[in-house]
């Protein structure tokens, strides 16, 4: 069963998890999110916790409420997420990764990595 980190509120962890899925196009922009109950069943969470997570994603403009239909992925949500994630990577993760690469003496030529054309 899913385990949750005790250092963060569960709704926050679920919001992060769902955001990561949205970034991968699941569900795609313009499509409906699974219902609160379906998500609660899938992750074995109290529906109130799921509701809070979806609300947090809504507050970030990633989901929109279509009256009577439920929550949908906002058009442009992936681009917004990508901008936020890129910023987070460059600010928080890259400096640590760079330090580690330097400590290990790994140069760019040893990283099998091709930027997207």
């Amino acid at each position: 069963m899913q385990t949750w980190d005790q250092r963060l509120p569960i709704y926050q962890q679920l919001a992060d998890l769902l955001a990561a899925q949205l970034l991968d196009g699941d569900p795609p922009e313009g499509q409906a999110m699974p219902s609160v109950r379906a998500l609660a069943g899938q992750y074995l969470l109290n529906p109130l916790t799921v509701h809070r997570a979806l609300q947090a994603l809504g507050d970030e403009g990633l989901l929109e409420n279509r009256r009577g239909l439920g929550l949908y992925v906002t058009p442009g949500a992936r681009d917004r997420l990508r901008v936020v994630e890129r910023e987070r990577f460059l600010q928080a993760e890259w400096p640590r990764l760079r330090d580690r690469l330097r400590r290990l003496g790994i140069g760019p030529e040893q990283l099998e990595w091709e930027p997207l054309a």
Partner: peptide, 26 residues
């Protein structure tokens, strides 16, 4: 959770497998 918990109905569950249902509970 999916079929019963609709925000109106309630459920009481007894267990001593506490960690397993912790995140389900209100």
């Amino acid at each position: 959770v999916d079929e019963w918990c609709d925000g109106e109905r309630s459920v009481v569950i007894s267990t001593h497998q506490v960690e397993e249902i912790e995140s389900l509970l209100s």
